[in-house]
Design a protein around this nucleic acid. Structure first.
Lengths: 296, 296
DNA sequence: TAAAAATACTCCATAGGTATTTTAT
DNA sequence: ATAAAATACCTATGGAGTATTTTTA
């Protein structure tokens, strides 16, 4: 049982992108015949053709199609191994790659990460700002250890590991004029008839539904005046008097001229934040999770 | 950014096991100088020493230690890629590797798997019988797609994905003599004072605790006469009149001379079975899960 | 001084390059 | 007729082997 030569793997992957032997050779800094020979060699090693090719058309076979993504991931991982070794030689005891959606930056995660970094100085912390779908992809591919996202659904969907780690109240971001209109202690009815800016449902369905249901319970059908995917954008829209925005309390850290934050009514739902753990949960990620407060 | 040569990777891994250049050469079918040269080459590629060696002692450096496990996993994955390609060429549309603890074979999993196989004829189903810890390891390494285990803890522990998929009553496996002693409709008190055979707590803590708590609620402190890790073994012990065994109802499929199954008392706890999903949840595993009945 | 890793040197298999031919549109 | 892949052939790097030297407990 032989492993695939990474050089040939790169060749195949480039070829699968270009679908052209000449351009592939150019991109790799090779000559065209070498590409032909290399691919033939790879195919004979595997025992199956990967590309159907004539002098006019190059197409992936089923085998090529099936091989493409896993091989890409494998090669990518392999490139990381060299870094692992070099880092370990300098006292690095592992890495933790954490994805965050932007608003989460304002939650408790940064301080937890800092505490972890102090407790484990050897660990290389890597933070990446990414949307939910990018994080899910990274977690599945193993290019991300932990994701930090707003609760994207009521129950753990296709079983990646979820873990509730933070819950906080909502606050309402409003413009100065709106704040004046509403007064210092606005009535619930007054609040709910204000224009609203809201994130699209698919960003955080449970969160979205919590807000919508709350409005419905008070006899108001939600009709957002504007939608935006980022919490920060919503707050900017609110500051421009587009309407009020329901955001997690930790977003109050984002202070902008013309924006005030009001407490949500006492009967309003609370806002949940979650950690979403990769399946390939490394020892470092485990250590990190064990150091966290046990969740609700 | 260059990837590690798999040949050198194999060399290093063998060397890390043997800690001896000569024996390593022998195991690989090489000559000793080639091992020296190969390792030096690898080290110069990485830019860090992997082994501290004198003519008397060979030891892994920190970098070598850090590289060992991930490299092993990487190489293993790489070997699988060739199989993926070959299988795809023959219409194979993916694979699903499912781990089962032995008693689970008697639960609903086999029929679900069969239904899945019918719906997805191209998928290569691979079943492996393995204990909980082996399955967890396989899931983390990505060498297993799904694990099928008895509920090992009340709540999802270090976040691998869990999903409850089956719940069934307990039944009591007893020997013929014990059945005679107890009579056809035994009183709860009579049952609970019978000697007991039980699995160790760490096999399935929640299940274990459910039984123990039930006994305690009736004023009985559980003192198993014998422990065994496999449900089938417990039943064999019961048949030899060691005591009665609490087992999932689906275990009744295991009919052995000298064993009878009694229904558990109506107030007894129920027994939960779970699917535990890998983090690196492949598209095939997802398709499988979507085809299942939604769980309680 | 003896076991084991490193070095010196040889050889050939093959990765990579140049020139040319074949093929399909 | 022509763009593009395949083939033929050449070269030289470096993988693999043999013999020997160096190292250290």
């Amino acid at each position: 049982m032989e492993s695939i030569d990474p050089t040939l793997a790169r060749l195949f992957l480039t070829l699968a992108e270009e679908l052209h032997f000449g351009r592939t050779a150019e991109r790799l800094g090779w000559r065209q015949p070498q590409v032909s020979k290399g691919l033939r060699h790879l195919e004979s090693c595997l025992g199956v053709p990967l590309l159907n090719r004539t002098s006019r058309r190059v197409r992936l076979t089923a085998a090529g199609e099936a091989l493409r993504e896993p091989l890409r991931d494998w090669l990518h991982q392999g490139q990381g191994l060299a870094l692992v070794a070099r880092a370990a030689a300098q006292g690095q005891r592992g890495q933790l790659r954490v994805g965050m959606v932007s608003p989460a930056g304002f939650g408790p995660l940064p301080s937890w990460l800092h505490a972890f970094q102090v407790a484990h100085p050897g660990v290389a912390l890597e933070l990446r700002e990414a949307t939910l779908d990018v994080q899910l992809d990274g977690l599945q591919r193993g290019s991300l250890d932990l994701g930090w996202v707003l609760q994207p659904a009521g129950a753990p969907p296709p079983p990646l590991g979820w873990r509730a780690l933070a819950e906080e109240p909502f606050v309402l971001a409003v413009s100065q004029p709106a704040a004046c209109r509403l007064g210092p202690e606005p009535a619930v009815d007054a609040l709910l008839t204000e224009p609203l800016v809201l994130f699209p449902r698919d960003i955080a369905p449970a969160l979205h539904d919590a807000v919508v249901d709350y409005y419905r319970a008070h006899g108001v059908i939600v009709q957002p005046r504007q939608r935006a995917v980022q919490m920060a954008t919503l707050i900017h829209l609110a500051s421009a008097d587009f309407g009020l925005a329901w955001v997690p309390a930790s977003m109050q850290a984002l202070q902008r001229p013309g924006v005030l934050y009001l407490d949500a009514p006492p009967d309003a739902p609370r806002c949940q934040t979650w950690v979403l753990a990769t399946p390939a949960l490394g020892p470092v990620a485990r250590a990190f999770l064990q150091g966290l407060p046990s969740a609700g």
